Simulated scan of single mutants.
Amino acid sequence: MIGPNAVLQLLPQIERVAGAGQVDALLAQAGIGQVPDGSAMIPEAEARRLHAMVRMTLPGAEDVLRAAGAATGAYILAHRIPKPAQAVLRALPAPLAARALSRAITRHAWTFAGSGRFAALTPWRFEIADNPVIRGAVSPVPLCAWHAAVFQHLYAALVHPDCRCRECRCGAQPGQLACVFEISMA
């Protein structure tokens, strides 16, 4: 199971670039009969199929996935991280805020990593082994723009506005076993 925002935040982005008809078509092609209501986890296979359909069919798919990731980060800030905790993180020096945020992300990794194995290698570097969103995919380039954008949005909002996240290795790339994300200050 994976958090419903892996699907829910993607739908407005698909509609923005391709129209409501394309949302319905991609949901059908991904085998999602009913849009999740956001109250419960969803089967990770649904998210994987929808992300794959976006990557295969939409021009500018990486931008669509990044926008959905940023929207997921905004949702997390609005609904999951208490405002007092956000204020404390913003007041801390960046290295301390990054350490605290990475611990919080680790505690809640099941919501975005599903059955994958998440690890905070450092407060600035994360890994998702067997990432369910790209499981089975093969690509010469990283595919996890959605995850990178979620991390970037949270770090830019809570650690330092210049934080950027890039996926430096992807489990979909030949020979790679995990997706690795690095946060840096631009």
Score class of each variant (00 low, 15 high):
A97L: 05
N5M: 14
A67F: 13
L77P: 11
I14S: 02
H147T: 09
L10A: 07
G73C: 03
C165K: 10
A78R: 08
A28Q: 15
V17D: 11
I134H: 10
D24W: 14
L101Y: 05
A71I: 12
D37I: 00
A30H: 11
A47F: 02
G60D: 08
I14C: 04
A28N: 13
V88T: 02
P142Y: 07
S102A: 05
V35W: 03
L8V: 05
L27P: 12
R66S: 07
I32Y: 09
F112P: 04
D24K: 09
N131K: 04
I32R: 04
N5K: 14
V17P: 13
R166N: 11
V150Y: 03
F181T: 03
R107H: 11
G171R: 03
A137T: 06
A45Q: 08
V64M: 06
T122N: 03
Q13Y: 14
C179K: 00
L50Y: 00
A25L: 11
A145S: 08
L50V: 00
P36S: 01
A109C: 02
S115E: 04
P4A: 01
A18N: 05
A52Q: 03
T57E: 14
A109E: 03
H147F: 15
V150A: 00
A47K: 00
W146H: 04
V88P: 07
I128D: 11
R66A: 07
V138H: 14
H79Y: 10
L154C: 01
L26S: 05
A148V: 04
G60P: 11
R90E: 03
H153E: 02
G31W: 13
G19Q: 05
G69L: 06
R80P: 15
W124K: 03
V141R: 12
V150W: 05
V54A: 00
A18P: 10
H147S: 08
H108L: 13
G175K: 12
F181Q: 04
H153Y: 12
A178S: 09
H51L: 08
A67I: 11
I14V: 06
P36F: 05
A85M: 15
R55W: 05
I14K: 01
A156E: 00
S115Q: 07
V180I: 08
E182H: 10
Q9I: 15
I134S: 09
D24C: 06
A47C: 00
A104K: 09
H160F: 15
I76N: 12
A120H: 06
M41R: 00
P123D: 06
L58P: 12
L96S: 08
R16S: 10
F181H: 07
S184Y: 13
L143M: 12
I81N: 11
P174I: 02
A145V: 08
Q176K: 02
A148M: 06
Y75M: 11
L65F: 11
Q173Y: 15
V180A: 05
Q22H: 13
F118R: 01
G116R: 00
L92C: 01
D63S: 09
E167G: 08
H108F: 14
A85S: 12
